[in-house]
Simulated scan of single mutants.
Amino acid sequence: MRRSSSKSRIEQGQLTPKLQKFLAESKDRDPFLVVDVDVVEQNYRELRRLLPHARVYYAIKANPAPEILRRLRSLGSNFDTASAGEIEQCLSLGITPDRISFGNTIKKKRDIAWAFDKGVRLYAFDSLCELEKLAEVAPGSQVFCRVLMECEGAEWPLSRKFGCAPHMAADLLVKARALGLDPYGISFHVGSQQTDLNQWDKAVAQVSQMFTVLQQHDVELRMVNLGGGFPARYRSDVPMLEAYAQAIGNAMTKHFGNNLPDMIIEPGRGLVGDAGVIQAEVVLISEKDYGDDRRWVYLDIGKFSGLAETMDEAIKYRIVTPHDGGPTGPVALAGPSCDSADILYEKTDYHLPLALRVGDKVQILSTGAYTTTYSSVGFNGFPPLKSYCI
């Protein structure tokens, strides 16, 4: 099947015609994000084609723009939510509660009760305390337990904070049934921007063993939530989406045979990351000493205005300038705020054109995910990151 031209352009570091036109015509003086919602749709359709047996629950936290949610709603997507606020947003857009998962394992009891009252019946947990809250205020609901993963190979790991040890998860799922809940399945997340396809095989092998253990306790699990991990296109090469789908499909058939359970995937970055681009401006170019070969390039966007995933230089964005193709030199990149932590890249080897000047507009590619939602309300008086969906 031939790829769509828009998706191919994004993967090659080019912008779709819609994005090019919008950027060329923009009069904005502050940095902004623009998302081509058609690319989001293409990514969703491709994922459904490659993993037809998996139900998609879009991780709203990646980008909750109403235009994106409406498009995915019309395509039949389900939605993974992390808070009562995200659930409220879904309901306000006509998304029915049977298409919503309350996937955060850290929830206030009153928020669980509110969600249950609104009709949400699918909940995540990873501790006895959370399970007891669910049993008390969401009786009879389907629940799934998240297990710990090492997240090796992920550029944005999710280990330690979420999940519990497999043997504890098994005990909790037995307990869930005793408390009147429906122990539906097990979830895991191999880490955001996962680059090691073997991680799904390791995770599914562990989960299948838990299915067997729980059968011995007369608990018939029926679902595996494979989480996210699907990539956007940053600086490093990553496998194509087909390779991810094949790795997941192979792991499930290898460890479950023909008796496949229900499958859920929770893409966020993989759906919206490549659909967006941030336009920013060069504010200052300086050196730290005479004869210093490396320039410091300061942009009008930084860690506190949308680029939080540059923390520890984890996510390495591609940057396009009006002078690409000419001679380049090494740079450190930083944001505009009066905070010494607001350095984007100092250790990573970035080179930008020597012709770069103050006032030049630059594009930061594949920024459709985890940018607007990380932007501060007004640190140092800078406004939150503006967003457009086209």
Rank of each mutant, 00 (worst) to 15 (best):
C90R: 01
I87S: 02
I106H: 09
A84G: 10
K109I: 11
R110V: 15
G85H: 08
K108D: 07
K107H: 00
A82G: 04
K107E: 00
L93Y: 08
A84S: 12
G76R: 15
T96M: 12
S92F: 14
I95V: 13
I95E: 08
G94L: 09
I87P: 03
K109F: 04
I112M: 01
L91W: 04
I106D: 11
R99P: 07
T105D: 00
K107I: 03
P97W: 11
E86T: 06
T81D: 03
F102Y: 15
K107L: 03
W114Q: 13
K108V: 00
I106Y: 12
G76F: 05
G76E: 10
A84H: 09
T96H: 13
I95H: 02
F79P: 08
G85P: 04
F102G: 05
F102K: 06
K108G: 00
E86V: 15
D98F: 13
R99G: 05
A113L: 11
F79D: 15
R99T: 14
K108S: 02
R110Q: 12
T105H: 04
S101K: 04
I106T: 09
R110S: 12
A113I: 12
S101C: 04
Q89W: 11
E88P: 10
L75A: 11
R99S: 06
N104F: 02
S83D: 01
N104S: 08
P97I: 14
S92N: 07
I100R: 01
P97N: 11
R99F: 07
I100G: 05
L91P: 05
F79C: 07
